[in-house]
Simulated scan of single mutants.
Amino acid sequence: MSVTKNIRRKPILLALLVGLCGNGTLAALSVHQVAFSLFPIIALVLAARMLYKEYLTVPMEGDTPLCTLLAFLIGVFGYSAILRTEFPEMGTNFFSVMICLVLVIWLALKMGVAARPVAKDETVTP
C-alpha cells in the first residue's frame, strides 16, 4: 500500500529562498565582513511576495505548512553555515550544520523522499 503525499513543491522552494535571502539581508546589514548588496533585499522582497501570493491562491493542505516552515529554517541555518565557513573568525558552523542536517532529514521524511519501502502482503491463494 503506497500513500501519496499531497505536498506542493513551489511554496517549499519559495520558503527556502525566503530563508536564504532573509539571512543574507540580515548579514549584509549587520555583519561587517559581508559586503553590502541590494540583491539579497530585492530577492527577499520578491520571494516573500510570491510566497504570499501562493498562500492566498492555493490552499495549503496536509503537511505543506510544516514542510514550508522546515524549508525556511533550512534556508536560515544553511546560509549561516555557509557564512561561517567563509568567515571562520565569526565562529564555528557546527551548530548550524547539525541543525540544518536534522531539518533536511525531517523534511525528506515528511515529503516521502526518504520513505521506507512498504512491504506488500504476501498472501498465497491456492
Results as ranks from 00 to 15, higher is better:
residue 103 L to Q: 00
residue 83 L to E: 12
residue 105 I to Q: 05
residue 92 T to V: 08
residue 96 S to V: 02
residue 100 C to H: 03
residue 105 I to F: 12
residue 94 F to L: 11
residue 111 M to K: 11
residue 111 M to E: 09
residue 102 V to S: 08
residue 80 S to Y: 06
residue 114 A to Y: 09
residue 102 V to D: 01
residue 106 W to M: 12
residue 110 K to Y: 09
residue 108 A to G: 14
residue 104 V to T: 13
residue 95 F to A: 08
residue 96 S to I: 01
residue 94 F to S: 07
residue 105 I to Y: 03
residue 75 G to Q: 14
residue 98 M to K: 03
residue 115 A to Q: 15
residue 96 S to L: 01
residue 76 V to N: 05
residue 101 L to E: 04
residue 95 F to C: 04
residue 112 G to L: 03
residue 86 E to S: 12
residue 108 A to V: 07
residue 96 S to A: 07
residue 85 T to I: 14
residue 109 L to N: 11
residue 115 A to Y: 09
residue 109 L to Q: 12
residue 88 P to E: 11
residue 107 L to D: 02
residue 117 P to K: 12
residue 104 V to Q: 08
residue 97 V to F: 12
residue 76 V to K: 00
residue 85 T to P: 07
residue 103 L to G: 12
residue 91 G to N: 08
residue 117 P to R: 06
residue 95 F to I: 12
residue 91 G to W: 05
residue 112 G to Q: 02
residue 76 V to S: 02
residue 104 V to G: 01
residue 114 A to V: 14
residue 114 A to Q: 06
residue 76 V to D: 10
residue 92 T to Q: 10
residue 105 I to C: 06
residue 90 M to H: 10
residue 109 L to G: 09
residue 115 A to G: 14
residue 90 M to Q: 06
residue 92 T to E: 13
residue 95 F to D: 05
residue 116 R to C: 14
residue 77 F to G: 00
residue 101 L to V: 11
residue 102 V to F: 08
residue 112 G to H: 12
residue 92 T to G: 13
